[in-house]
Design a protein around this nucleic acid. Structure first.
Lengths: 189, 189
DNA sequence: CCGAGGGGAGAACGCCCGTTCTCCGCTGCC
DNA sequence: GGCAGCGGAGAACGGGCGTTCTCCCCTCGG
């Protein structure tokens, strides 16, 4: 096989890890599965990630960057600050409808490993904190009261959980409708 | 030891299972841990539950009955139909503040086993379906539009997830505030 | 051409865990 | 009292998995 430098090997491992961990759950994917799917030998795999836990951490970290990047790119296509808030829920609907959607990776990982692995719990809190801060930013940019941000955040989280469990996109629309009502309420309507 | 009939043995096993599965996650609790905590021998344990998966199923099932019973008992102490809807969120706050609260057992189990075990996935869907139907009932009893129910449901789900991850009770109050606003909107206020 | 070293494949190791089996003591009936 | 059978304790079994080790090939410098 052609030589492969460390950073591409790393990416291939993370690609495989993301697909498998997200699709089946972390604990039922073995390091051997990762090797098979990535084509990176166990030896090198352990050079890149000294233990499975660190691979899980890296998987969540990289996915966080991607996920928030995609969200922001979608939202920023709208100009109006209030439209941007609603776009958040439109984006959820797009996400929920994607092939292989299986709920929120962080919520799932927290359910699986939150009690066991401090590193995983930390990644989840960081991700949810960053998402919450992003919502706060959108709310502030629209000149709306800060209390609204937490409420929208809960709607989004509820929609993610429910979409994951029911395998439908409908929760995104329900959450969007609720968000519109809350926005209207803030405008004093 | 004194003789123990099947139904008390069953209860003791389920008590132990509930505490351990909920507190640490299903997969990191072994059948031996259940035996140690319940005092029921492995042989009898396997007579009562032929496989671990069925014990998990029974744990979720019994917890569902308890959980919804407690919720209903709390809510029904209020007379006014709209107060009952808000009481739902007050009850969440009580629940979130309990010792050992670690999020929603069904959401956690779904993250852990939803992709692997059809029985577990089914239990989770049944539980969430029953909770959703209960919310719908409260909304209908208050003469409010059915679309509100789904929105309140999402708020409650979001609060459960967030309270579990952050280990705070605050999401219950945020969700309650949002619920009040949505109610007010329905009244045409 | 030769020897050293890095990397790949996969066997090996140790441990855990779900499930079953073995052995033994107790109990209750004749 | 004797014996059959139920039930408890825990060893045993089989498989899986995280991690490490062994062996071999290929490459590259002399």
């Amino acid at each position: 096989m052609v030589v492969m430098d460390s950073s591409t090997a790393r990416e291939q491992v993370l690609d495989a890890a993301e697909e498998l961990f997200y699709g089946r759950g972390v604990q039922c994917v073995g390091m051997d599965d990762i090797r098979g799917a990535s084509g990176v030998s166990l030896k090198r795999l352990y050079q890149l990630f000294p233990a499975k836990e660190q691979l899980v951490e890296a998987y969540l970290e990289r996915r966080d960057a991607r996920w928030r990047g995609r969200l922001a790119a979608f939202v920023e296509r709208r100009e109006d600050p209030e439209e941007r808030i609603l776009a958040l829920f439109d984006w959820l609907e797009v996400w929920f409808g994607e092939d292989g959607f299986r709920g929120c990776a962080w919520i799932n990982s927290y359910g699986e490993l939150g009690a066991t692995s401090e590193r995983v719990a930390t990644q989840v809190r960081l991700h949810k904190g960053a998402f919450g801060a992003y919502v706060e930013g959108l709310v502030a940019a629209a000149g709306l009261p800060g209390t609204l941000a937490g409420q929208l955040f809960l709607l989004a989280e509820g929609a993610m959980v429910t979409a994951g469990i029911t395998q439908t996109t409908e929760p995104a629309r329900q959450a969007r409708t609720a968000a519109e009502l809350l926005l209207r309420g803030c405008r004093g309507g």
